[in-house]
Amino acid sequence: MAALLEVSNLEAWYGESQALHGVDLKVGEGEMITILGRNGVGKTTTLRAIMGLIRSRKGEIRLAGKDMLPVPLHKTAKHGLGFVPEERGIFATLTVEENLKLPPVVAEGGMSLDEIYELFPNLLERRSSPGTKLSGGEQQMLAMARILRTGIKVLLLDEPTEGLAPVIVQRIGDVLQKLKARGMTVVLVEQNFRFAAKISDRFYLMDHGQMVADFPVGDLPNRMGELNKVLGV
């Protein structure tokens, strides 16, 4: 499969300290991959560096063949890349609907507002409330929903299940399945690999700012020893 998103030898820095030491990553169109790893190994940094939120970066990031390194941050979304941060980034001074409508539509094929409200009925009910008055789970739904409107092709999703009740985690899993069915390409960062195993095609295992393993979901049972060692569980 030709890779839609191809990252090679990506390095990134926070000030003087290097956080990524040559990350290699390939994601095919419509594929959903999950990056596993302990806290602080550079999972979030990988997503932020791909998105361009971290500007001190080196290496290669290609989206559908296009070199993304020189693209300014506000033009990155136009090339089809979307990011949902771990803290969700819901705006307190905007209503739920204003939050939803905030990211400009960059391409056709995104969900309409009606489709979104059908998928997330809670958001319809609360559309005039301030965004941060929603529960944690609803905020996560809102954070994902607003990216789905834009028609991006590759979603970078950082720990969507963190701190959420099992029933909400289940719901987020359903939403991700639907996205996959629509052909969305997803790069997921997740601590909960049992959750990730249900929806991902492939796993990347990360340690010390590098990918140390890469295997399809079917290999998970054989890899448990290695996983436990690297994840320290």
Binding site: H74, T76, G89, P103, P104
Partner: peptide
């Protein structure tokens, strides 16, 4: 949150 807004394409 200016950087997130910028990442949205604004």
């Amino acid at each position: 949150n200016p950087s997130l807004v910028q990442a949205f394409g604004i």
